[in-house]
């Protein structure tokens, strides 16, 4: 049985960079724990020797020819961007 507590939820929320209201954390913790309990039904299934299935069809990747097909469309692509200057997307200062 997986029981997630407040600090688990906070840790996962930070990994996902997801703001969650403090007062909602207990409810998330409960719901997430319930969902995890539900999915843990799979634990009892014998899957020894079963190949993981990533795609419904056992297809393989098609290869694209190395040709430039796109041209400069910056004005259109940036026309609804939140914050742009001199063609650059702006974000709060990144410190390395």
């Amino acid at each position: 049985m997986s029981t997630l507590d407040k600090s688990d939820v906070e840790k996962i929320a930070f990994l996902a960079r997801l703001g969650i209201d403090e007062q909602d954390i207990p409810e998330y913790a409960t719901n997430l724990s319930n969902i995890l309990d539900m999915v843990e039904q799979l634990d009892s299934v014998d899957t020894d020797g079963v190949k993981p299935m990533a795609h419904p069809l056992d297809a393989v990747q098609r290869l694209r020819a190395d040709v430039v097909t796109e041209s400069n469309d910056r004005e259109n692509l940036q026309s609804h961007a939140p914050e742009v200057e001199q063609g650059l997307y702006l974000v709060p200062r990144v410190v390395e």
Partner: peptide, 9 residues
């Protein structure tokens, strides 16, 4: 990975 396996089943 477990779910990918049950997906195949």
């Amino acid at each position: 990975v477990k779910a990918q396996k049950t997906r195949r089943l």
